[in-house]
Computed example of a mutant assay.
Amino acid sequence: MPPVSCPVPWLCGYTGAAYSGTASAIRGDVNPSLPSTADYVGFHTGRSVFNNTGECAVVYNRAHYQGQSLTVRPQAGIRNLPASFGHILSIRFAMCQGR
């Protein structure tokens, strides 16, 4: 079940684990470098992420789709980003493979 704070069709990043803390939301298909502003604090200092879109979201721990990546399927999330991953600095949306 999606967190109440993440409306359709948004990808939401949270400063706390288990979709807690300050939330930031983004939608769209091109996000090569998320600005370091308060609007994106849930990604830049994020600990969890929820995808409430109809596409897979691929999140990267470096700008311009570099570094490690994690795929978040639609209507699913990662309750606690691995410490080794760090934070989300760029995002791509794409059709999910194997669907």
Score class of each variant (00 low, 15 high):
M1N: 10
P2F: 02
P2E: 10
P2S: 11
P9S: 12
C12H: 09
G13C: 03
T15I: 05
G16I: 01
A17G: 01
A17N: 13
A17Y: 06
A18F: 12
A18I: 03
S20N: 02
G21A: 03
A23S: 14
A23P: 11
A25Y: 04
A25G: 12
I26G: 05
R27K: 12
R27H: 12
G28L: 03
D29V: 13
N31A: 14
P32A: 11
L34P: 00
P35K: 05
P35T: 08
S36R: 12
T37I: 11
T37Y: 02
Y40W: 08
V41A: 14
G42T: 09
F43H: 07
H44A: 12
G46M: 03
R47F: 00
N51T: 07
T53P: 05
T53G: 04
G54C: 12
G54P: 02
E55R: 14
E55P: 02
E55C: 06
E55L: 15
C56F: 09
C56P: 00
A57D: 07
V58G: 03
V58W: 00
N61S: 10
N61E: 10
N61V: 09
Y65R: 06
Q66E: 13
Q66C: 08
G67F: 08
Q68E: 14
T71Q: 07
V72M: 06
V72P: 04
R73V: 04
P74R: 00
A76F: 05
G77Y: 02
I78F: 05
R79A: 15
R79L: 13
N80Y: 12
S84L: 06
G86Y: 01
I88R: 07
L89V: 09
I91N: 01
R92H: 01
R92N: 04
F93W: 10
F93L: 10
M95I: 13
C96T: 11
R99M: 08
R99C: 14
R99H: 08
